[in-house]
Amino acid sequence: MSDPMRIRAQLMGDKVDVRVLVAHEMETGLRKDADGKIVPANYIQSVTATCNGKTVLSAQWGPAVSKNPTLAFKFAAAGAKIGDKVIVSWVDNKGDKRSDEAAITAAS
């Protein structure tokens, strides 16, 4: 089980600014360990973010994304208000998944 994501979502005018810190190894499958054996690939393949049931971000990731990646994006608020939840989920190539949420706050 992986560690939770850290999510911050802030309402900025008519947009919601989202920042996500993801805890993930993001192994490329190309590295070798001290014994010369290939370290099996383990990376996130799909990321989605939803707000009020609507998908606001859908991304396909690959092994080129760094370990413990940070993801930042904005989406049009379109009715989303302070207190609404932004849910971010990922699935990796081993089928592991994780979903975390954060309430939208006022811009600081």
């Binding site: 560690d3 939770p4 850290r6 920042r19 810190l21 805890a23 413990n68 940070t70 930042a72």
Partner: peptide, 10 residues
């Protein structure tokens, strides 16, 4: 901007 140290802090 987006320092993963936060994951360790948590």
């Amino acid at each position: 901007d987006g320092n993963p140290a936060e994951l360790w802090e948590a």
